[in-house]
Amino acid sequence: MKIDIKHIAKLSRLKVDDSEIEKFEKDMENIVSMIENLSDLEDTGSLLDKDNSMVLREDVAQNNFKRDELMQNAPQTKAGCVVVPKVVE
């Protein structure tokens, strides 16, 4: 099976150099062929863990973080905001 690395890379928001395409293609095909020889499996029930149903906490707003602490990790800030490239023309 041929895998369209360019398309997958676009979906993944990754740039793949033309020189790397062949390498990734081969890696991917090897990995995919591992699962292709699986026999058909019967769907035997729910995929959720019946013993451990998740309990959600109350949806209450909490003030856990200070703005300036969070902003310290931002790559680029201005006037207390994160700077990003222009999105709307």
């Binding site: 895998i3 979906l11 993944s12 990754l14 990734f24 991917m28 995919v32």
Partner: peptide, 17 residues
Amino acid sequence: SEGFGDEVKRRILLGTF
């Protein structure tokens, strides 16, 4: 592309596929 190494990219590509 600059921030992730090859193994991470490989798995992101496989997972996306």
